[in-house]
Simulated assay, not measured.
Amino acid sequence: MTTSQHSNSQTSKNQIRMGVWGTTGAGKTTYLMRLFHALANSDSWDVAVDDKTKTFITMHSEKMSKGYFPEPTRVRGKELDIYSYRLTYKGAGSRTKILFEFIDAPGEFYEEIGNAKGKVAETNQQSKDIVDYLLSCHGIIFLLDPTRENEDGKTYEVLLQDVFMEMQKRQAELNPDKEDKLEQYVAFAVTKADLKKIWEKGMNSFGLVKELLNINLSLGWFENYVWLDQNQLRLVRGNYPSAGKNHRCQFFSISAIGVYKDEHGNWESPISDTNESDGGILEQTDNPQANTTSVFGGIPNYHPARTKTEYRFRHDVRLVQFGVIEPLEWLIDGILTHPPSL
């Protein structure tokens, strides 16, 4: 994170709005909760919340502290609330302040993007649908679930195409003189990579996106919708190159819950699943980040309509998260350096 390059006078008023896109069961609420805890435990960040966000965190924290995952998101009113984390970056003598705004929307709202389900409550008493909200975001984190099956609905290729085409159409309606490429910075994050079948792939994150999600897409496909420099996708000494004016897309792998070491020193997934034998026991290593893809993820796919099993994770062991903050930091850095024209 190079936020220290931004002057305090500039960054004291930074308000960054983020979208977190994901299908049902992708782990959006889990990610947002674990992101809060990762930021709170970070040496680089301080985080504070308002009353509404405090209620959101408290509601889910009690259940997660006992090893249960959040319930699938439901809309409790006519509109979706906007939550916020007030972030202060503490690195290199800087006290950069950022207001990170987000919504927690049900996955089906994103799966049927053309129907424009859901309204988002804005402070100006107006409301937006999901697509307009995404267009108002400076950055979007796309959480991609590798355990999602095609029979669960549309393929990821179709889902991503739907949302990008609809956003392009509306962006052109708002400003016909703009480039067709979207202004937003985007981070594609493969979740649940602590599952054994994902860990053993040992490939970079874009490779995971292509193979595990069955997306028959080239990088050229992504370039059609977002600003992407293919030369900037490679890890350099374990780090991703910075985002910039002509490069606003990156691929990550994340572990929302984390992994732990057993008594033999092996890294294991803490997830309990009586219906799946695809465990997530990882090969022994002194450092799980030795696999430079940081391929760890979140939870097994949760289908409440198909099974009575309630997935749980161990909370009596020290869990090590991976890649939770990195997508956010990468997005923030690019947004502060070259703000998108919204």
Rank of each mutant, 00 (worst) to 15 (best):
T337H: 09
P300E: 05
Y89D: 08
G265V: 00
I215Q: 15
T307H: 12
V209M: 06
R74Y: 04
A172T: 10
H37P: 03
K178C: 10
L35E: 00
G139V: 12
I82P: 03
V324Q: 10
L282I: 14
R76F: 01
E71L: 09
K308D: 14
T309N: 13
S65V: 01
F313Q: 06
I299P: 01
G279Q: 10
I254Y: 04
H138F: 06
N246W: 10
I198A: 11
Q161T: 15
D129S: 07
K28P: 04
I82R: 02
F222I: 15
T88M: 10
T55G: 00
N287A: 12
V47R: 02
L174Q: 15
A116F: 09
G220R: 07
P146A: 07
G297Y: 11
H338Y: 15
Q171P: 00
K192N: 05
Q126T: 11
F322K: 12
W21S: 10
I254P: 02
R306N: 14
M167R: 07
K52P: 02
N41Y: 05
I140D: 03
A105S: 14
E62G: 00
E166P: 05
K78N: 06
Q250L: 10
I271W: 04
K261P: 02
L213V: 00
R234M: 13
Q284D: 08
M18S: 08
I332F: 06
A48Y: 05
V163K: 02
